[in-house]
Amino acid sequence: MADIINEMNLNFLSRSYNESFARATVAAFVSQLDPTIDELSDIKTAISEAVTNSIVHAYKNGIGMIYISSKLYSNGRTIIKIRDKGCGIENVNQAMEPLFTTGGSERSGLGFAVMQSFMDKIKVVSKPGKGTTVTLEKYIIRRSVGNGR
């Protein structure tokens, strides 16, 4: 069992400006695992998709809080949870189908497909009326053992 080497929580309002704030902040936190540029870019993209979902769908009728928590493990395992208290998803399987969108013609419907393909694991738990938690996981390949602890 790998040890937790660091942990953080980040809470912010569902303002669209915070899409870039959230991905940059999580990327800065994950950087201590010494990821490659590609690994970091994958994580930033997945965070951006999850946070955008909370802003566009979960809180479509207003503004609410988005809660991100992240844990880093000594073996490079990186867990990032993105949680909202928005409207929830009626049918998670349908929402996760590529190209399914309720967001109108400017939304590609690729959000979950991107999270699935850019991360190693994704779990979505949602309760209508209560909110949604997306858990993303990625292994950062350890190249320099002992660095950044």
Binding site: R23, S41, K44, T45, S48, E49, T52, S105, E106, R107, S108, L110, G111, V114
Partner: peptide, 16 residues
């Protein structure tokens, strides 16, 4: 420098 799936939506919309 960076693009999430909103960039795909942007391309699709302008294509249409």
């Amino acid at each position: 420098q960076f693009m999430d799936s909103s960039g795909i939506g942007l391309i699709m919309g302008r294509y249409k």
